[in-house]
């Protein structure tokens, strides 16, 4: 896929409100099975339906910490592509994730916030939860290069 083709996909997805259309073009997002919808306020809400292949601890069982990290990072990437002016994929500079609770073998949700967007750098925070938003499973923050 060329950069221009990706731009078309992003623009089209935004125009038609086709949130899932964007996700379908990111192989890793398909691999972990993540999806996206818009909440009542029109903000992206990310979903990671439970799949046995995302398990990292069979004894608990719990999702793999890497899956939670990848889910949060990809949520931040797509959130930024959905909400900001540019249509290319931002480059991750660095990424921090804090694991607050064990991620059980159930559906997981995430939402993001662009804390600051400058000309070159964006700072995005992402939170994921399972049973209740007030009980986050993990929080992450990402610095992106926007060029």
């Amino acid at each position: 896929m060329t950069a221009m083709e990706l731009e078309q996909i992003v623009l089209q997805a935004r125009q038609q409100g086709d949130v899932a259309g964007l996700m379908a073009h990111i192989p890793y997002a398909r691999l972990i099975g993540m999806d996206m919808a818009l909440d009542e306020s029109g903000n992206p809400r990310f979903l990671l339906p439970f799949q046995p292949k995302n398990i990292g601890n069979m004894a608990l069982p719990a999702l793999h910490g890497g899956v939670i990290g990848g889910f949060l990072e990809n949520s931040a990437i797509v959130h930024l592509m959905w909400t900001r002016a540019s249509t290319q994929m931002p480059k991750t500079i660095d990424f921090c994730v804090d694991y607050l609770r064990s991620a059980r073998a159930v559906d997981t949700f995430a939402r993001c916030e662009v804390t600051r967007q400058g000309r070159r750098i964006a700072h995005v925070t992402a939170t994921c939860w399972q049973s209740a938003p007030a009980e986050p499973v993990a929080v992450a923050r990402v610095h992106f290069l926007l060029t």
Binding site: I26, Y28, I32, G66, G69, G70, E73, N74
Partner: peptide, 9 residues
């Protein structure tokens, strides 16, 4: 590769 792959690794 996706950053999530490196995160899992």
């Amino acid at each position: 590769l996706h950053g999530g792959v490196i995160t899992s690794l």
